[in-house]
Design a protein around this nucleic acid. Structure first.
Lengths: 237, 237
DNA sequence: CCTACTTCAGGTTGACGTGACCTTATGACC
DNA sequence: GGTCATAAGGTCACGTCAACCTGAAGTAGG
């Protein structure tokens, strides 16, 4: 056992991209390959030590920018993981105890486009990470599950889903975001009714053109709505 | 500026006691008087530095036991506060930067009874803390507000309120707990219907005697219920 | 012993939100 | 002009909730 406790800040970043095979919109996240022990060569959440003059959020934002080039639309603290035996494994033996303050973030389509797929950064569909041969470094697999649950819960009672989208968007696109996050189909009519009822979006007055069907209205997310609730409930602890 | 970042664990503890004047059930919490700089003499949340071989929850539990003699029924991580300028004030100038991982807890009536009101520990009604002449040490006032919001939100979608009560209790008592936490009156009939509908309590088959009215049934909290939701919604960010 | 009083237990009713489903609108494409 | 695809909007049966009402069951006081 060692006296020193190290403080790190990591971030789970979610983005939406079409799945390479099915073409459906799915959740992706960037992982960084460890270039030193412990867990050298394994995939981990982007993060790093907390600098003495850096706030927690700033630290999350800075590491994210440095490693992935991303500037998230939404960034929020998730949880502090700090058990003594966390990520207990042969790889970690003999290394310092680390308390990680983990954030989670959403990036929009446009920001996503600027993401760097460097040598040591790669994007993965979230539901395929569990199937990877190698589990994630440290307890990052557990952290990812936790973040995913939080995202799914929060999407039903807050308008964060908008953060995935550009400034203006048709309702169908917003619905596809919800479907991707919650991983189930939603009734277009009822979705429309609920979203419009709670006023988290407002009509821009314009429509999207160039579609092979009736042109959908364009909406933008309305400022300052609380009292948000979709009936679409997901599991909550 | 200094290089060292210190890690502390603090806890916001809630308990229910009758108000000394009105006699109504209200929320109370224990505070500890600072006996050294910074903020010497001011009231602060119970807490202390994280020991190298101690898990985060363990640390919260241990400090609580040591300072107040309390063993909470419910204990849960609240948030990590770690901004560089947090608790920025004349008192704090020149002292080390502290990142606090804050927990919040509930204690039942019986545990509460064993609480020690030592020289440097005192219980306060939550709504009177803001009126104190001296604000709390560090940013603990902000933290308290945050914890209170979390408690109020969580009480509507999870059966934690039971943690305030003894093993067996009449429904009216459970309702009074909700009323104290949410700070508003609830319709007895509708409260009964909602609580019974979601099955978070079960009938013990016995009744409370000695009351000046029809003897109420005694209930106990039922194990393992998720899918809990009271319509009684409070503010949520 | 009887009545008043209090709170618990449980039922009724109208308003409202939701899920399932249906109809119509409107553009592109051939 | 007809076909196609999806958006926009509507209908209806059902379940849930807040507000209100009635009866039950004990104690307290004369």
């Amino acid at each position: 056992m060692q006296d020193r406790i190290e403080l790190a800040v990591s971030t789970v970043v979610f983005s939406l991209r079409p799945h390479p095979e099915t073409g459906e919109l799915t959740l992706w996240l960037p992982l960084v390959r460890r270039i030193r022990e412990p867990y050298e060569g394994r995939w981990a959440l982007p993060g790093g030590p907390l600098a003495p003059e850096e706030n927690l959020v700033e630290s999350a934002r800075a590491t994210l920018q440095r490693t992935t080039g991303l500037t998230p639309r939404h960034l929020e603290q998730l949880y502090a993981f700090g058990d003594v035996d966390r990520s207990h494994s042969a790889d970690a033996a003999g290394h310092a105890r680390v308390v990680s303050i983990v954030y989670w973030a959403l990036v929009g389509e446009d920001e996503d486009a600027e993401a760097v797929d460097g040598e040591n950064v790669e994007w993965f569909p979230v539901d395929e990470i569990a199937e990877e041969a190698e589990p994630l470094a440290f307890d990052h697999g557990v952290i990812l599950d936790y973040a995913l649950r939080r995202l799914r819960a929060k999407v039903t009672y807050s308008p964060i889903a908008h953060a995935f989208l550009p400034e203006e968007f048709p309702l169908a696109q917003l619905r596809r975001v919800y479907e991707a996050v919650l991983n189930r189909a939603l009734d277009p009519s009822n979705f429309r009714r609920q979203i419009l009822a709670q006023g988290s979006v407002e009509d821009t007055g314009r429509r999207q053109t160039g579609t092979a069907h009736r042109p959908p209205k364009l909406y933008r997310s309305a400022p300052g709505r609380s009292r948000y609730a979709l009936t679409i409930q997901e599991t909550d602890q």
